[in-house]
């Protein structure tokens, strides 16, 4: 029986979010909160491994109370248990403070059921760093395996996993001892539509919710803003360049002007034509 923990995050849908041009802040009202798309693949992979080898999938997240809906989404995908750690003292955490808090939650989960494998998405679409996964692995002192795009084998009896890690020009097959942590690429799987029974289960599901006081051995100076070595000193829109010349006229006139620009670089096209 494998116990797999997937680490997830609820994020604003940054594709939709609008910036307030006056304050340079995100107008969160414009963006719905969703399960980080990369994490959906992490949960899906955990569920596939559960079906292949037998076991249980737990998901854990840190966030404000509405993050419950991201956990429910994971239950739809096929996760069995969900844990939300939520507390004002977590607020303002950078990647170092986040990996600390999530590690404390995983340690608590592991007390009742030892953890064999942790799976994270490659990164979150709002933070875009990919640093929390390896951070959790270091804190738990287990090997981090990033850029995983295929899980070849999990052998719980002999205590190892074999995965493919994506490289710039191919991949490498790596064997690691268990437990270990994968952070997975989106290409590792496709997340299908959830089966109806999962949807029903998710609708009724209430995750375990913990505050800082429910966790054990927490050094509160390592949490939230206080525990974050990095700070955002300023947020700014890059100076707008003067902009280019707008080609005026009807479409044919516009294209004619564009064509003369392109033909000034004729050598680029001739090379392609082999002339």
């Amino acid at each position: 029986m494998l116990h797999i923990v997937a680490c997830i995050k609820q994020v604003p849908d940054t594709k939709i979010i609008k910036m307030n041009p006056k304050t340079n802040t995100m107008d969160r009202r414009t963006a719905p909160a969703i399960l980080n798309p990369y994490d959906a693949h992490a949960v899906e992979e955990a569920v596939r491994l559960k079906h292949k080898y037998g076991g249980i999938v737990s998901v854990v997240t840190m966030g404000p109370p509405p993050a419950v809906s991201a956990i429910k989404k994971c239950i739809e995908i096929g996760a069995d248990e969900g844990y939300l750690i939520t507390d004002r003292r977590f607020a303002g955490a950078d990647t170092l403070a986040t990996s600390y808090a999530v590690t404390k939650a995983i340690e608590k989960i592991a007390k009742t059921r030892p953890v064999d494998l942790i799976i994270c998405g490659k990164m979150s679409i709002d933070g875009d760093t990919g640093q929390v996964g390896p951070g959790i692995a270091r804190r738990l002192d287990i090997p981090p395996l990033t850029s995983v795009n295929k899980v070849v084998e999990i052998n719980q009896e002999e205590g190892y996993a074999i995965v493919h890690r994506k490289l710039e020009d191919g991949y490498e097959a790596v064997r690691s001892t268990l437990p270990c942590l994968f952070s997975v690429e989106k290409t590792i799987n496709e997340v299908p539509y959830s089966p109806l029974p999962n949807m029903i289960k998710a609708a009724r599901y209430t995750p375990q919710i913990w505050s800082v006081d429910d966790l054990e051995g927490v050094d509160i100076t390592q949490l939230g803003l206080k525990g974050s070595p990095t700070i955002v000193s300023k947020v700014w829109a890059p100076p707008k360049p003067a902009g280019g010349s707008i080609l005026e006229g009807n479409p044919r006139a516009q294209v004619e002007q564009l064509l003369s620009v392109l033909l000034e670089k004729k050598e680029l096209f001739e090379a392609k034509e082999g002339v």
Partner: peptide
Amino acid sequence: STGKDLASAVATDLPTGLTAD
């Protein structure tokens, strides 16, 4: 992928701040 993997691990152990990308 190598640089980010390494930097994330090193930052956690030192510990120190790490700015990505």
